[in-house]
């Protein structure tokens, strides 16, 4: 019960902080800020229970044993990662989302098949993503050309290794 209760509390408090901060000022690196907010809330909950004891929480069940703390940690990490992944779709426009939205807005008339080609420009498909990769420090620009950073190499190594394990061609 304690794991579920404190997991929900971390989620609600973390999201409230995230919501308020985003309406005061958007951070430069959104995902990093979200991770700090939610994992910071999780650590604060654990620290409060550890240092201040059960009495602080007015009879609410607390995380008394180490396996419960581990269960709470796994619960929070899984849910925060799930939210961070979902958040990436808020940050950027996916081509599929743009297409479905445009077809929906065309209503009963429908969207001419040929109009699909003009919906998304090369700039939207490539340039914006490259600039995102520079912002996330996976690429660096030097003399008009881009090269991978060590972080970018690690990123693509993970994806490429798994893709080869599954025996799939490169997507995107």
């Amino acid at each position: 019960m304690a794991v579920l209760l404190w997991g929900i509390i971390v989620g609600v408090v973390g999201f409230a902080i995230h919501f308020v901060l985003w309406h005061i000022r958007l951070p430069q690196r959104h995902l990093r800020a979200i991770a700090i907010i939610f994992f910071g809330t999780m650590v604060a909950v654990l620290a409060a229970q550890w240092f201040l004891g059960d009495s602080l929480f007015g009879g609410l069940p607390c995380l008394d044993e180490l396996p419960e703390v581990v269960s709470f940690f796994i619960f929070c990490v899984a849910c925060v990662f799930a939210y961070m992944i979902t958040y990436t779709s808020f940050e950027v426009d996916s081509p599929t989302e743009v297409m479905v939205d445009r077809i929906d807005r065309s209503g009963d008339q429908g969207l001419p098949v040929g109009a699909m080609d003009d919906l998304i420009s090369n700039e939207q498909m490539v340039k914006v993503r490259v600039l995102n990769l520079v912002r996330d420090r996976m690429l660096i620009e030097e003399n008009g050309a881009f090269r991978m950073t060590p972080k970018g190499r690690r990123f693509i190594w993970v994806f490429d290794t798994y893709r080869r394990l599954l025996g799939r061609p490169r997507g995107g």
């Binding site: 490259v130 991978m148 970018g152 990123f155």
Partner: peptide, 16 residues
Amino acid sequence: NLNVTARRPRIMGEFL
């Protein structure tokens, strides 16, 4: 899904 459809791994793959 990122491996299958996303542009970032695809673009980084071009660098690789």
